[in-house]
Design a protein around this nucleic acid. Structure first.
Length: 458
DNA sequence: TCTGGGGTCCTAGGACCC
DNA sequence: TCTGGGGTCCTAGGACCC
């Protein structure tokens, strides 16, 4: 027993994957797109993209800051996704507050990824998020007259900036983790926005990171737990016994240990492959909902919307989860401020069936609580081609529902989501029509600024 | 942590089966 | 029933990231 605590796990870098991985990150993406589209300097303009409840953010209130320009980040100490309350109020005149235009960002994302694709084929190009992508250029960089990955990174940066006005920061490493860490912890603060971290640099790079929370994969909570055991930095992490970490933190502990040595055995296309495993929506309601019927309507609308997304993306759901968040200060009889329930279902993507199941969950957990937020989620997704034989299902009814969904989807695709909604959605408390303009839960931007076509600069 | 978001991964613990 | 052990499936909940 005690034997294994004496030993320490040691990595042999010669046996670890050594590639030329680039982690590309569009600096302050949404904010930069806004600046580029308006002809403002992305580096000096103080700008935040804020999703807020009313038309004009004149009074201090709720609101989600989706992105901020470097200057705004610095001036107001903002991080990735912040809240409106993190800003000084009244809002300073020097600060530009603009509503999100999600469609514009998605269009720009496509343009930029098409540029990346010129430097790496599909196999070696992976989209990690709306503003981050990984490229494996090990075998292709010489094709572009680049002697080193660093050199190629510069070429890509220039090309993207020339064609879109967006600055890209690049982390370079032997594996995706090192590239990502180089990006997060060094590239973003370099004037040329590049950084290269290799295995042999680990002592001078990863181990020099001061804060645990600056290390990818460690948030506030985990940092506190680690600190409780005297681990205060990535260096400490790397010099703690592997088995002790495993004992205390399970798989996460072993993973963090490996990461602190720069070890990542995934190749692009494995863990970094974005595969849809769940599809859901959540929304904070514009006011407290006390009427059961109103909440039921919201759930119907959201289930319908999620059904549309499932069908569009070619999935069927095998599990559902419904969450209700209560009004501020409200507690149920168990003292909770929210409740969530999930269940298995026979695979489906039919709106009607999804609505029935979600309402079943609702009946299960609803007991007159005052509701302020609702989330519906579908998980355990499988491909559309799969058809489960259900001896008890009425095949004619099934076909009829499928046909109805297909028609509804077609009409909505052509005329917009709100062209066809449930009668309930015209009643008080309904959100479907307003929300139909949203993309990813935020304003799509079709209304644009002064009617500007959203693809102006593309 | 606090209310116009959307995701992923991991774990504990119970039910059930052999 | 209470001193069996092991495996699998399922749900609830925590943590983190963009």
């Amino acid at each position: 027993m005690s034997q294994r605590f004496i030993e320490q796990v040691v990595f042999d870098y010669d046996r670890e994957p050594s590639r030329d991985i680039l982690c590309m990150d569009c600096r302050s993406f949404y904010a930069s797109v806004e600046c580029a589209d308006r002809g403002w300097d992305a580096l000096t303009t103080e700008l935040v993209v804020m999703s807020y409840p009313s038309d004009v953010p004149t009074k201090r209130g709720s609101g989600l800051i989706l992105a901020s320009s470097p200057a705004a980040k610095k001036a107001y100490n903002l991080n990735n996704v912040s809240r409106a309350r993190d800003l000084p109020f009244p809002y300073p005149d020097s600060l530009q507050i603009v509503p999100p235009r999600m469609q514009l960002y998605m269009d720009m994302n496509r343009v930029i990824n098409n540029i990346y694709k010129q430097f790496a084929d599909d196999e070696n190009h992976h989209v990690y998020s709306v503003d981050e992508s990984f490229l494996d250029v090990t075998n292709t960089m010489h094709l572009f007259g680049a002697d080193t990955a660093f050199d190629l990174a510069r070429k890509i940066q220039i090309k993207v900036h020339q064609e879109t006005g967006i600055y890209v920061a690049v982390g370079i490493g032997d594996n995706p983790l090192l590239a990502k860490l180089a990006l997060d912890n060094e590239a973003k603060t370099q004037s040329h926005m590049k950084a290269e971290w290799r295995y042999q640099d680990v002592p001078n790079t990863i181990w020099q990171i001061d804060e645990l929370t600056d290390f990818w994969g460690i948030g506030r909570r985990m940092a506190r737990r680690l600190e409780a055991r005297g681990i205060r930095s990535p260096y400490d992490l790397a010099h703690t016994n592997y088995y002790v970490l495993q004992e205390c933190f399970g798989v996460i502990g072993t993973q963090l240990f490996a990461h602190s040595w720069g070890i990542d055995r995934t190749f692009l296309g494995e863990t970094y492959q974005p595969k849809s495993k769940s599809i859901g929506n959540s929304q904070a309601l514009p006011r407290d909902y006390t009427q059961e019927e109103e909440v039921r309507n919201i759930i119907k609308e959201m289930a319908d919307q999620v059904g549309t997304r499932l069908r569009r993306e070619g999935y069927q759901a095998q599990s559902l989860s419904l969450g209700l968040g209560y009004s501020i200060g409200y507690q149920d009889k168990d003292g909770r401020t929210s409740v969530r329930q999930q269940m298995k279902i026979p695979a489906t993507h039919q709106s009607k069936a999804l609505i029935e199941y979600f309402l079943q969950l609702f009946d299960w957990i609803y007991d007159g609580q005052i509701i302020r937020s609702v989330s519906v989620n579908t998980t355990n997704l499988i491909g559309d081609w799969w058809e489960q034989l259900d001896l008890f299902a009425d095949q004619m009814e099934e076909d009829r529902r499928d046909a109805l969904d297909t028609i509804v989807d077609k009409v909505r695709q052509k005329y917009g989501f709100s062209s066809l909604v449930y009668g309930n959605s015209l009643q008080a408390g309904s959100r479907a029509i307003e929300r139909s303009q949203l993309i990813g839960g935020h304003a799509g931007g079709m209304s644009g600024i002064e009617g500007t076509p959203i693809t102006k600069n593309l």
